[in-house]
Design a protein around this nucleic acid. Structure first.
Lengths: 154, 154
DNA sequence: TAATATCCGACTATATTGGTCGGCTTTTAG
DNA sequence: CTAAAAGCCGACCAATATAGTCGGATATTA
């Protein structure tokens, strides 16, 4: 159920770019340093994101990466889907990576995963970089898991 | 984000045992056939589940596996956690597999994953085999993803 | 005692993850 | 004009996880 480092790294870099949005490019060495991502690995990640149209690059001295779209036009769902391929817990309930399952007529638990998939995708697709970023500004960053768990829905 | 075949297979076998609860053991060849799971692989899976105390076995002719607990005392959450290790999308929001992350004070997106983790674990831990099984009896099994998506919460 | 079970360790094949490395091209400051 | 700094990009690699197979030992019963 875990997402890859790649997705994590991509997201870190993206939010750094969000923070700097409208103020010129940031070079990879800087992005790598700030987010503790291995530089050569981040190169590939940024390149993929460029191909997706999320970031743009300027080469040469003083170059680097910046967002290619407004932060409210990129969602975490898109990013995770691109790098991890699937948001659903099991392929028979995935829209993007659907695979038929011969057990379907007799499967008892498919419904549970279907509900989970729906909740996860709803959250992820709602989570634009802009929304997440501004929400983070008004929240404590050090909240513990248990603390939050009693917190109810948000 | 996807769960392993192992978990899938384990769940298939479990629900077969639920269906047969109180009516004696089912041998692995039968469990394997009914659920389209490779028999030698299923052996290992059943053995693991036995160690977890979910099923019990009787060896020798006419032997096989049966549930060791009432179906309302086993949850899908337990099963997935055992075989896949983690329910959370990222270790920094996992209760069972928590790992500190140096980026935490500046991480903008942790909150989103925390919310998702909470929803997923809530659903999974609520989903006892008994509840899921009886719910499945009253539901259409062939519902498409899109159909369900418009369905609202359940 | 033969048939049918579970039990269990050892083995393997393949895919994915998580990178590194080297060299090329592009741009610009001096 | 040239050196530094940046992105571009394909090839490669090591470690781990996944998804099993196989062979044989042991237990039970018709």
């Amino acid at each position: 159920m875990k997402l890859s480092n790649k997705t994590d790294y991509a997201m870190r870099a993206l939010f750094t770019l969000v923070e700097h949005y409208g103020r010129g490019p940031i070079p990879i060495p800087e992005l790598a340093r700030r987010n503790e991502v291995p530089k050569p690995f981040l190169e590939h990640i940024m390149l993929e994101m460029k191909k997706q149209g999320w970031v743009r690059s300027t080469v040469g001295k003083n170059g680097g990466y910046s967002l290619a779209k407004s932060p409210d036009q990129i969602t975490m769902g898109e990013v995770v889907r691109h790098f991890d391929g699937i948001l659903a817990p099991i392929a028979c309930v995935s829209a993007s990576h659907y695979e038929p399952c011969s057990q379907r007529p007799v499967c008892r638990f498919r419904r549970v995963f279907l509900e989970i998939r729906n909740q996860v995708t709803r959250q992820m697709d709602r989570a634009s970089l802009a929304a997440v970023f501004t929400a983070a500004l008004t929240q404590r960053q050090d909240m513990s898991i248990d603390e939050y768990a009693e917190d109810g829905e948000v």
